[in-house]
């Protein structure tokens, strides 16, 4: 029996046109334990890229390199080169607070601030000085909630706590919060894993709209979700990038045997 898929030591990558993010030779260590090995990856603009791979393979770790969240973990060291629009984000002169405004993040568990719905959104733009007046801020808050498909549901309860919303609404609130600072990139780490199918569909619909203006990366354990929402897919295994290319190709005819075994449910 023959098979076209191979198990290579070199990752199979199809270059992305017009990448927003380019990573080269990225290694990440927790203490002396290495979690990411020599990863090269391009993330295309105005598209959704999904990161998939078995638990513990380093998806979240790699994602956190992109907005330097790993800086907050004392034992974590990152080496290599990561650029956003050509700018080295590990340049010591770079303002990390500003970087995190440019690179928004949405987490697995919705984590609204223990403040009002309004304040959840207004907080970021205010500290980054993005608006000049109360009226402008009000408008921005409304626009973000509208974009996140939440405005109708919350417009009469703007002063109620964000934590009082349902899980799905909270997640969309977090997405609204993430886009309020007008980021270029949105990182989503399993954003739907706690949501029901309807709430998931709403988030996916939102991502689809957002991709017109943003570069989005989503980490997901659902192969169907990756296949549904993303244009590019990167498969990680044991801290290495195994394959990165067109989503259609990865889910119909992957090049590396490990990718095929993973997405078809044949792993270990």
């Amino acid at each position: 029996m023959e098979h076209q898929v191979v198990e290579g030591s070199k990752p199979v990558t199809v270059p992305a046109l017009d990448p927003t993010i380019t990573a080269r030779g990225v290694n990440v260590f927790y203490g002396d334990k290495q979690a990411i090995f020599d990863v090269d990856v391009d993330v295309p603009r105005n598209a959704i890229t999904s990161f998939i791979g078995p638990s513990g393979c380093g998806k979240s770790t790699f994602l956190r390199c992109i907005n330097r969240m790993n800086d907050t973990i004392p034992i974590c060291t990152v080496t290599g080169d990561i650029r956003i629009d050509g700018e080295d984000i590990y340049d010591p002169r770079l303002d990390v607070v500003e970087l995190r405004a440019r690179v928004g993040m949405v987490f697995q568990k919705p984590n609204p601030f223990p403040k009002s719905i309004y304040e959840n959104i207004a907080y970021g733009p205010r500290i980054h000085g993005l608006t000049r007046s109360k009226k402008e801020l009000d408008e921005l808050v409304e626009k973000c909630l509208e974009k996140a498909g939440l405005l109708k549901e919350v417009k009469d309860r703007m002063n109620e706590p964000g934590t009082g919303l349902s899980g799905g609404q909270q997640q969309r609130l977090c997405i609204a919060r993430a886009i309020a600072t007008r980021p270029e990139v949105i990182l989503m780490d399993e954003p739907c894993s706690a949501l029901d199918p309807i709430a998931t569909a709403k988030v996916e619909e939102l991502m689809e709209e957002l991709k017109e203006n943003y570069t989005i990366i989503i980490v997901t354990h659902s192969m169907q979700q990756a296949a549904r929402v993303s244009q590019r897919t990167a498969f990680f295994h044991l801290g290495k990038l195994v394959e990165n290319g067109d989503t259609r190709q990865i889910f119909t005819n992957p090049s590396d045997k490990r990718t095929q075994d993973y997405i078809t449910g044949r792993f270990g």
Binding site: V5, M223, F251, T252, N253, P254, T259, Q260, I263
Partner: peptide, 9 residues
């Protein structure tokens, strides 16, 4: 099952 890749084919 929502088959993928070689299973889908």
């Amino acid at each position: 099952r929502q088959p993928m890749a070689n299973d889908l084919r």
